[in-house]
Design a protein around this nucleic acid. Sequence first.
DNA 1: CAAATATCAGAACGATCGTTCTGAGTCAAC
DNA 2: GTTGACTCAGAACGATCGTTCTGATATTTG
Lengths: 198, 198
Amino acid sequence: MAQKTSLTSDTLTDRALQYFWKNGFYASSMENLVTAIGANRHKIYSTFGGKKQLYLACFDQYQNTVVTPAFQVVETTAADLASISAYFEYQITQGEITGLPGPGCFVANSATEIATTDADIMAKVKYHNHRLRTGFHTALQREASKTPGNLQTDTENLANLLVIFTNGLWSMSRVVDDAMILRQSANNFLHLISRAMA
Amino acid sequence: MAQKTSLTSDTLTDRALQYFWKNGFYASSMENLVTAIGANRHKIYSTFGGKKQLYLACFDQYQNTVVTPAFQVVETTAADLASISAYFEYQITQGEITGLPGPGCFVANSATEIATTDADIMAKVKYHNHRLRTGFHTALQREASKTPGNLQTDTENLANLLVIFTNGLWSMSRVVDDAMILRQSANNFLHLISRAMA
DNA sequence: CAAATATCAGAACGATCGTTCTGAGTCAAC
DNA sequence: GTTGACTCAGAACGATCGTTCTGATATTTG
């Protein structure tokens, strides 16, 4: 019994995230969560306070362990349109590894399941969309700056379209079993963006 | 008590759809459904068989009372890109009337909530996306045919992007409170489509 | 009017929900 | 070796889940 003390709060959150992500909030009972994360009920309540708080903690975990590794390529100062393409490619590959149809985006799922009836979740969802929009925007601005004299490209609106498309793509990843469709869609959409900036 | 016999199965399904649409499957308890649709439990079980069957019946109701009135403009033989624009405008206006943030698309919500764990729901979702894709495709083909000699426009891929964008837009409609954002996004996206066909 | 049918609200079913609590077991400190 | 703080599985809580059933009321039929 050497691994008893190794169950950190971080590990619990990570395992809970995996389960919530796959099964959703309502379909994830405490009974299931307890067995899924390998901790007893007491630990969950003493550490987080309850199911809802554990769920909220998963948002930060998701940002750190999923969004940042995938999206940081877009958030660097050197990011451009190719970086956005790399982001989609990375996420689609992750979906392939996990298996399609997959769980999609944890945040988008939450937006659908409980955001409209819970202000805390709504705030987390809005933050996530804001993060994507900001990242896309700066990358598109850099891309636009490559074309000298290009001042009329509406990078803000294009960034907004990218956020919406991202949401739609992960929604689609929940019902398609071939990654090629996702990959082709991302490429085609980025091609439209590219043409709009020319 | 003259209206007792007026509660047809169609009326029940319609009211159930409204409640499911707004609250989702899991958060809609039988207790809530009974009071929401104005019928007793016995009626629900004798007519539909149970909660899940009632939910499935709502899909057909949604197609008939929501999708068809909004999307038929795209499905006519005379449809073109302007028809697609009219479809988005119609849906966004409906969202404005219902109030934003709104319930989004009933089918897309189901895809997120239960499609991955239920084959029946998955089939309904796939049918819906297929319907959208087919409608968009034929409308885009007609639009493309307006430009003589235009044979290289990949209307199939563009139709697919429209389906994904539609999913993303309704997902977004669950967290934004201003219809202008949705309207502007739809217009901007159709503008990209338009440029791609030129 | 009387008999048969349909519809109703609500009790009741076992199961499971999120949460709290109990008691046995494990560990480190001194 | 004893104490005290920890973890653990699992019992148990009231509440609510989806479903079934009961008895009263309303409507229709002959």
